[in-house]
Nucleic acid binder design. Structure first.
Lengths: 232, 232
DNA sequence: CTCAGTAAAGTAGTCCGACCAATATCCGTG
DNA sequence: CACGGATATTGGTCGGACTACTTTACTGAG
């Protein structure tokens, strides 16, 4: 009579689960180095090939990091690490889902902007102002977009919630913008954005959460409604 | 003189990028079947082992689905598929990040509940009512939690945004609850939850978005503040 | 003794080939 | 045509060999 080995799924899936377990129960801590692929494979009772698949999976999920020639390490497990894959949704979701993603962004960004208004310090505010100036002074589209992303990123971080900031960043990524706004980045759109950004900045400066919230919501809503009109 | 092959990263990473590209540019469509592992490896110019790692990576990301004996298929690429990994954040984030995750959940859930109040139909409302009844009638903790999750899930879906609902669901998963509320699921907590849920339901019934929003926010905030107190 | 350079060991990355297990297809039988 | 079993297809697993990169240890010059 054999021992009832509860084999569920592939050996690779099991290995993924076991490593995840080791992290949740504290056996593996952030930054810690793991045994070598060969050792791990031996300990968990599978081949190195399958072990590598498990490691690769946890690598793309932002849980592990493999350094060629050195070893395998647990990441810091910070929001940015684990939410790396969130960007994928923005990248390959069907067009129909883009408006839903923008809606989520609007919800999160308006909340983040409101919270930023309540707690932003002078230094952070100066950083935001700097990006605002850059957007007003440049006429190059690429530079404008870079400053735009930095502007929103700085605000999201000023809200003091790394998870929130990480999600917002990935919903404002370059590739996402490219998918949504293709053909919409004309002079009018830039002028509109400059106005919106000014309104957001003034609300932050005034430490007025509600004004910040509505300004941020309106800013995203412009893109949102433009996209909706495009889908018809 | 060799041709300048822009080899960036491992061959597996390149293969992952190439398949992602095929999906974004429409070469591969949702539900479509891919060539066999062996064919793909040959076409992209790498070994089957490395190809398998790429496929495994895209599998855990919810982009591909491998069926033993049948083939490899693109998933439907719906929100639920691609956001599967979001649950990982809730599962293995360090404890310190849990409060930030709850804060995100509060933001999203209050917005979703408000929107649900504005557009929920009678059938959906009846479903919500059913879960509410179950929570009132049962005295078993497991049953209560199941109904609780179904209650919030039904509301999130009634908001009409699949992405939003998928994220909320993963921020309310069983494992996440277990991590947050360990030791907090006593009779008082259940009683409190019943009251909160009643308030949310009445707001939905009255089609009052603002009441729904504040009721949902208050509901999550209770857990949030309890957790904050535990971290000291 | 200090330090730079180099050799050696350790480790992840890649490839190959074989076989197993689940599924799909084909074909003969009734 | 319906059915069931043989056959082919396809993903899953394994083991080993070799490559490329990193780290460590050693060696010799100063």
């Amino acid at each position: 009579m054999e021992v009832a080995t509860p084999v569920k799924g592939t050996v690779t899936q099991r290995a993924i689960g076991q490593i995840k377990q080791m992290i949740t129960d504290g056996t593996l801590e952030p930054g810690q180095r793991l045994p070598t692929e060969r050792d791990l494979a031996a300990r968990l009772g599978l081949s190195r090939s399958s072990m590598r698949e498990a490691i690769r999976a946890l690598t793309v999920l932002g849980v592990l990091e493999a350094r060629h020639g050195s070893g395998i390490y647990v990441t810091r497990l910070e929001a940015g690490d684990l939410l790396e894959t969130f960007g994928l949704v923005a990248e390959i979701s069907p067009k129909a889902a883009l408006v839903e993603l923008l809606e989520v962004r609007r919800i999160l960004e308006s909340a983040a902007t409101a919270q930023a208004a309540a707690r932003i310090d002078e230094e952070q505010l100066a950083t935001v102002a700097g990006h605002l100036t850059t957007m007003h002074e440049t006429s190059d589209a690429a530079d404008f977009i870079t400053a735009d992303m930095a502007f929103h990123g700085a605000i999201a971080r000023a809200a003091g919630n790394d998870v929130l900031a990480a999600i917002i960043e990935r919903l404002s990524s370059r590739t996402f913008r490219a998918r949504v706004q293709r053909g919409h980045e004309d002079a009018d759109a830039f002028a509109q954005a400059r106005e919106d950004h000014g309104r957001i900045y003034r609300a932050l400066q005034a430490r007025d959460p509600e004004a910040a919230r509505s300004a941020a919501a309106a800013h995203v809503r412009v893109v949102e409604e433009w996209l909706r009109s495009q889908l018809d």
